[in-house]
Design a protein around this nucleic acid. Structure first.
Length: 563
RNA sequence: CGGGGCGUAGCGCAGCCUGGUAGCGCGCCUGCUUUGGGAGCAGGAUGUCGGAGGUUCGAAUCCUCUCGCCCCGACCA
């Protein structure tokens, strides 16, 4: 492809709205343009990258026996009503009605539709297992689209769905997907981790996410270098660092006039927050209860929600009605409320509210002065210990590039996707659902591979295998050799971009570095006189000077390897 | 949805406080020169100053409303 014939609108300066590195570089290097918040146009270079990513995805999906299909983006509401999600999902779903007034929506995912299909078509255990997938647009009216293509309102997704007879079958399909995902992300040149995750609204018991570490990521993951435990912070278990030393306090109420928060009381008494119990009054379905975390810890609401269901914080006057004391002087002892306490409080001796206006109690011993249900309900933090092997864990930001869910019968039951087993019994199909965001792969690849000059694509997903940079097309010899290279590479089926523009060398170098094709072939009059051309690595900037014949041979090898 | 910021030429920005014929750099077009890291000279084109209403002799500038975009938070199958 000739540079002069492909639309690559590079910019010297990045539009001011871009913040994330991948966003800035995609705009500057002429890959994307923004139509509106969370809506992007993919220009030729970006679309070529997406094509390469999707090709890798297809190859690996096909390799596990998955079959590609295509489902509509426009869905009738009835099916979504049957699973309850028409009502469960709020403003995030784009809703519209057709000319007949029927409620419709734009598909944000396809569990409903594919399960409908299975319910119509799968009758017998003989038709199982199945894995069906598609690569297609999804629509989500995000509250806050951000970071370029990382979080958009319309995006391409590879979504696949497995249908099995039983849990063992699901386990098999799940494993196959996990393995395929490892191959896909590795082939795309990404650093990534598979982490345990919260199934969330998807339902089901088990879920994992594939996370590409990057400061631009929206998720926080925790990693244990020793045992390999990796989890999204949404569910990550950990042991808080440094248990407080045992003090020999006796149980006593001490006046703390006007001091309510842990910080205030801790400062007033000059005792570290680690010796405090934070007592939060919450209102659940079955009434008020107390959540207890150590003074230096934060309550993890999602973890708590898994234990007690939905809850909300109590209002100021509710607290007074329930405990007869103002929030700020509440403690775990001297009251009969249900208590959920974080495991970090199990040992030690603590200070907490005295349940008496203006007083805190010092010397509280858990399990002696109060009883509680013990759970991990704190937010894992830097310096915490791994809950499995006690090694120190690391926290990091990451981009979610894929996820896998065990759904079970969450969709097959309401949509009546049943099969008949050998004995003629009607049994709900066991399902799994699996997603990959190709645009996030591209953005993560840029986030993980760039320098001050621009993008450095992994060769597997670069828009071209290599770029030829003739420094002066007016020079007859440069022009001749360039065309020789170009034609020979094309003949080999190597996807090559040739910068035939009448631009100065500096412009061509800058643009080449910006768009990030990993291998550059530089053909200039000066070096040609000495009988060589240059092969330059975009990543290392290393230049190899080779004679024309050797260079052609070498480049063919590089180009073919890159595929 | 809460908090903050910004909308002036394709991109980056100044002008606004203190109202008086809309500017700079880059890019773009033409010509000549130039050709190993964003060239030089000469000439040229480009604006509903986000939109609507108001104040005023006069509004990019002041007032009111509104729309859009970005960032932080909440939310996120």
């Amino acid at each position: 492809m000739l540079f002069s014939k492909i639309f690559i609108p590079t910019l010297r300066e990045a539009p001011s709205e871009a913040e994330a590195v991948s966003h800035v570089l995609m705009l500057r290097a002429g890959y994307v343009r923004q139509l509106a918040a969370g809506l992007y146009i993919y220009l030729p270079l970006a679309w070529k990258v997406m094509g390469k990513i999707n090709k890798i995805i297809r190859e690996e999906m096909d390799a596990i026996g998955a079959q590609e299909i295509s489902m509509p983006s426009l869905h009738p509401s009835e099916i979504w009503q049957k699973t309850g999600r028409w009502d469960d999902i709020g403003e995030e779903m784009f809703r519209l009605s057709d000319r007949g007034g029927r409620d419709m929506c734009l598909g944000m995912t396809h569990e409903e539709i594919i399960t409908w299909l299975a319910s119509m078509e799968i009758r017998s255990y003989r038709g199982l297992p199945q894995i069906w997938y598609q690569i297609q647009a999804k629509f989500r009216d995000e509250a806050r689209p951000k970071s370029g293509v990382l979080r958009t309102r319309e995006f391409i997704m590879k979504d696949s769905y497995s249908f099995d007879r039983d849990e063992n079958g699901l386990e098999e399909s799940y494993k196959k997907h996990a393995e395929a995902y490892h191959r896909i992300f590795s082939r795309c040149g990404l650093k990534f981790y598979q982490v345990e995750s919260d199934p969330g609204m998807m339902g089901g018991a088990t879920a994992h996410e594939f996370m590409a570490p990057s400061p631009a990521g929206e998720d926080t993951i925790i990693l244990c270098k020793k045992c390999g435990y990796a989890a999204n912070i949404e569910i990550a278990k950990s042991t808080p660092m440094s248990q407080p030393p045992q003090e020999s306090w006796i149980l006593e109420d001490i006046p703390t006039p006007g001091k309510r928060t842990v910080d205030e009381v801790s400062g007033f008494l000059k005792i570290s927050p680690i010796f405090f119990i934070k007592s939060l009054v919450l209102i659940g379905k079955e009434g008020p209860f107390l959540a207890l975390v150590r003074g230096d810890q934060e309550l993890h609401e999602k973890k708590l929600q898994k234990i007690v269901g939905d809850f909300r914080p109590a209002q100021r006057d509710e607290v007074r009605n329930i405990l007869g004391v103002e929030a700020g002087f509440i403690g775990p002892h001297n009251n009969k409320l249900r208590k959920i306490a974080d495991i970090s409080l199990k040992d030690g001796i603590y200070i907490s509210g005295a349940n008496k206006e203006g007083f805190h109690t010092k010397g509280i011993k858990p399990s002696v002065h109060f009883e509680a249900e013990w759970h991990d309900i704190h937010v894992a933090g830097e310096g915490d210990k791994c809950s499995k092997c006690s090694e120190e864990i690391a926290l990091g930001k990451a981009i979610e590039i894929g996820n896998i869910f065990k759904l079970g019968t969450k969709y097959s039951k309401p949509l009546k996707a049943f099969y008949l087993d050998e004995k003629g019994r009607e049994i709900p199909i066991i399902m799994g659902s699996y997603g990959i965001g190709p645009a996030r792969i591209a953005a993560a690849a840029i986030e993980q591979n760039n320098d001050k000059d621009g993008i450095i694509w992994p060769s597997s997903i670069a828009p071209f295998d290599m770029e030829i940079i003739p420094l002066n097309m007016e020079d007859a010899e440069v022009s001749r050799i360039t065309n020789q290279f170009y034609n020979e590479l094309i003949k080999e089926g190597i996807d090559v971009l040739m910068d035939d523009r009448d631009e100065r060398p500096g412009v061509k170098f800058k643009d080449a570095d910006l768009i990030g094709i990993p291998c550059q072939v530089i053909i200039g009059g000066r070096s040609l006189k000495d009988g060589f051309v240059e092969i330059k690595s975009r990543k290392t900037k290393e230049v190899e000077k080779l004679s024309v014949d050797v260079a052609i041979k070498k480049i063919k090898e590089i180009g073919i390897q890159g595929r």
